[in-house]
Simulated assay, not measured.
Amino acid sequence: MRVRVNVFVPLAPKMVVVFVGFLIAGMGMPVLPIHVSQDLGFGTFVIGLITGSQFCSSLMTRLWAGDFADRKGPKKAVVVGLSLAAVAGAFYFVSLAVIGNPALSASILVAGRGVLGAGESLIITGSVAWGLATVGPQHSGKVIAWIGTAMFGALAAGAPVGSALFALEGFAAIAAATILLPLVMALLVAPLAPLPGRSTASASRFSVIKAVWLPGLGSAFASLGYGSILAFSSLLFLHREWADGWLAVTCFATALVTSRILLGHIPDRLGGPVTALVFAIVEAFGLLTMGLATQSMIALAGSALVGFGYSLVFPGFGIAVVRDAPPESRGMAMGLYSACLDVALALSGPALGVVGDVAGLPAIFVTTGLLVSLSTIVALSLLRRA
């Protein structure tokens, strides 16, 4: 317990930054599909396109964000990311100003989500690099898990807050919060002591890619469950005529946060691939449960299983990345590893939206469960390689 406390204390400020940065996404996720569907009149494909644009932007900026954190220092990366998140809120307001032209409004939302994706890329990559530099790679599982806990805790808290703001003042309230929260956090981060950027040349990108590609593939498959919950769970509840669809996101995030708080030490202790293997099976079962559920409580239980399963898959595969990546380029490696998540989410939004249009919303979750199960093959490959 003493070791955990000693690690937690220096990580706490980074966790607060990530919590505030991703509270923005938590507030927007459950209401954005409803806003696009009811206020703009578009179907699941456009919803998936707007949702996926954020992850597509993150994908395009992750490697740069990691290299930026290595060169300029992780604190500067975090501050720039918070500033970009505030700019995204301004795009939201512009999209509302032209809501009479749904196509233009949706296009501006795509741009705003893209800016937000770049900001969040810098926030999460910079915070992880900051944490690894502070407590050392021997605690890499805890760094990835606990900073991720702050991110998903923000999603859990943001879902009801966002739904309440949307009910009171509509999407304009979400836009205002998206501007104010990151600016306040940037002011609070300013007094923290920075860490210097690297003083040596970076490792070759080939060596970084070699360390990342296989665990990144496993993470990409597992992250499809995360994407389907964020983009389509609230619509599933509307389709089934169940109340309080935002609870699915909250159950997912709450189970994930609880698991990482109580079990975040497991990947460092048992090994990343073993942890990823076991928890990916749980995640896939939860998605199948959601797709086949005939009652809202069963669907919520399935969503919680998805969160519990996904909780340690990402840090499990991440340990393999930190172990094999060149020390002077760990920020770049973690940025590239996170980009694998973004590839999955950017492509899965529109693709799963097509599945929903053709076969119905429940089919999205059944299909995703089958895809997530492929990550177990990657975990077994890493075990054999080790």
Rank of each mutant, 00 (worst) to 15 (best):
G225P: 05
G309W: 07
V372M: 13
A88P: 06
G141M: 02
K142M: 06
G264Q: 06
F308I: 03
I144S: 00
G148E: 02
A220L: 13
L165Y: 03
P350A: 08
L11V: 14
D324Q: 07
C56N: 02
S259W: 03
S53Y: 10
G291C: 10
S53L: 15
M332G: 11
I377H: 05
C340A: 15
G28F: 01
S140K: 05
L230W: 05
N101I: 00
D268T: 06
A220V: 06
L49W: 08
Y92A: 12
H35V: 08
V372H: 10
I108G: 00
L292P: 01
A111C: 12
I108M: 01
V17P: 05
E241D: 14
G286Y: 12
T294N: 15
L82M: 14
Y310Q: 03
G291A: 08
T61R: 01
I147Y: 06
I147A: 02
F171N: 00
A133V: 05
A203K: 13
S199T: 15
R62W: 02
A255L: 12
G117K: 04
G114H: 07
A344L: 11
Q38L: 14
Q38T: 11
L352G: 00
A173D: 01
A172S: 11
L352C: 03
F285R: 05
T258K: 04
G117L: 08
V98D: 02
G286T: 12
S53H: 10
W246L: 09
I108L: 09
S381R: 13
A133W: 00
L109Y: 12
I99H: 07
G158D: 05
L288K: 07
G271Y: 11
P350E: 12
V9C: 00
I174L: 14
F171H: 04
A284K: 11
I209M: 15
G271N: 06
I319E: 02
G316D: 02
L63E: 05
S202Q: 13
R71A: 04
S140I: 04
V18L: 04
Q54G: 06
K210G: 00
A333D: 10
L270P: 00
L104F: 10
A301K: 01
A255C: 12
I24Y: 01
M332R: 15
